[in-house]
Design a protein around this nucleic acid. Structure first.
Length: 252
DNA sequence: AATGGGAGCAACCGCTAGTGA
DNA sequence: TTCACTAGCGGTTGCTCCCAT
């Protein structure tokens, strides 16, 4: 197998943490020219970074639509389930968590689960005090810098959205696959089912008739009978398909 | 007040897979 | 078919922050 390396640092690519100026240069370049061709991004954007580094920075930090902030309990549930299913396939797992990157999930898993058995009372103590402090800070942060892209999808945010949009709690849909269950966030039902179909894991669609109480059973016999879209999923759960969107914990 | 250690996260590294000439 | 190039993945490292002592 060819071991390829990114272009040799002819002038010495910069390493280490990205500066706001570099972020700006990269974002502007990618917005103008699109993703891909990372080696030319490195050469032409004015950022003295390797293409690999540029790609990573964009994918993990600068890309629009990224959800920053704490992993929600729902997302945590998904991570646990999918990790049980696929192991360390972080990018695959990340596909089912919109706005989350594989790196983020990988880090989360390592810090929260890999050493779980090592966790001590001290750890628990610290966690709860952190949570407390975060809760206190959250409202302040949201008030002070709502647009800085650092902490969105927060619990405080969810509460706001919940108030604004009318309070239907986000449920998981758990398709049955033999003895395995797979949690899916409601808002992403269409991409998820498309992926599943593409991957040939289930090759079929939801049985809407069974979609009661926020649960749907997978039904092989319904393969290809209907195109599952967000709206269809919304219908399956008695929601209004025209207003179905993710609000970071609640659907309207 | 100083400092040692753990947690969390950003970034790097090495490798593989995909693609087009 | 081979080879060069590119994109992406998973593992690892290193830095920063914060808490406990």
């Amino acid at each position: 197998m060819i071991t390829w390396a990114w272009p040799a640092p002819e002038k010495g690519w910069r390493k280490g943490p990205w500066t706001p100026e570099e972020d700006k240069l990269l974002s502007e370049y990618v917005k103008l020219n699109g993703e891909g061709r990372w080696s030319s991004v490195a050469r032409c954007s004015g950022v003295n970074r390797s293409g690999k580094s540029c790609r990573l920075r964009w994918v993990n930090y600068l890309r629009p639509g990224l959800k920053r902030g704490q992993i929600t309990p729902q997302e945590e549930g998904i991570i646990i389930e999918l990790h049980a299913l696929w192991g360390n396939k972080w990018s695959t797992i990340a596909r089912y968590l919109p706005g989350r990157t594989d790196n983020e999930i990988k880090n989360y898993w390592r810090t929260h689960f890999k050493n779980k058995d090592k966790s001590s009372k001290t750890h628990e103590k610290r966690k709860s005090s952190e949570l407390k402090q975060k809760r206190n800070n959250q409202q302040q942060e949201d008030d002070n810098r709502p647009e800085d892209g650092k902490r969105v999808g927060s619990s405080a945010n969810n509460e706001k959205l919940q108030e604004e949009h009318g309070k239907q709690e986000l449920h998981f849909i758990c398709p049955i696959l033999g003895d395995q269950t797979l949690p899916v966030m409601f808002q992403d039902a269409a991409p998820w089912t498309e992926l599943v179909a593409e991957d040939g894991l289930w090759g079929g669609l939801w049985n809407i008739e069974n979609g009661q109480e926020g649960r749907a059973d997978y039904n092989n016999t319904n393969c290809n009978k209907m195109a599952v879209q967000n709206q269809a999923s919304a219908l399956a759960f008695g929601g209004d398909p025209s207003t179905c969107f993710y609000t970071g914990g609640y659907i309207s």
